[in-house]
Amino acid sequence: MSDNPIENSAAVQRALAGKANIDVFAALKQANELTKGSFATFSFAGVVVLAIFIAVFVLGTQLLNIEINSAEDMATPEYSLLNLIIILVMSPLLAGLTMMGVNRARRKEVKVLDVFQWISIAVVIALGALIVAIIVEIGLQLFILPGLYLGIATTFTSALIVDKKLTAVSAIVLSVRVVNRYLGQFVLFFVVSLGLFAFAGFTLGVGLVWVLPLYFNTKGILYENLFGDADFSVEQTGSTFSA
Rank of each mutant, 00 (worst) to 15 (best):
A11V: 10
A15S: 15
K19N: 14
K29P: 02
A31R: 08
T35Q: 05
K36G: 10
K36W: 05
G37K: 02
G37F: 05
S38G: 07
F39N: 06
F44I: 11
V47F: 15
V56D: 12
L59G: 06
T61W: 10
T61Q: 15
L64D: 13
N65W: 01
N65F: 01
I68Q: 07
N69Y: 06
A71I: 12
P77A: 11
E78H: 09
N83T: 06
I85K: 05
I86N: 10
V89P: 03
L94N: 14
L97N: 12
T98R: 11
M99E: 06
M100K: 06
V102L: 11
R104Y: 04
R107E: 15
V123L: 03
A126P: 10
L127R: 02
G128P: 07
I131N: 02
V132W: 04
V132D: 13
V136F: 07
E137S: 15
Q141E: 05
L142N: 12
A153H: 02
T155M: 13
T157V: 00
S158R: 03
L160W: 01
I161L: 01
A171V: 06
V173E: 05
L174N: 07
L183I: 13
F190N: 14
L194T: 09
G195A: 08
L196C: 07
V209W: 04
W210H: 02
V211K: 07
P213Q: 04
F216S: 13
K219M: 14
I221Y: 11
L222H: 10
Y223V: 08
V234C: 02
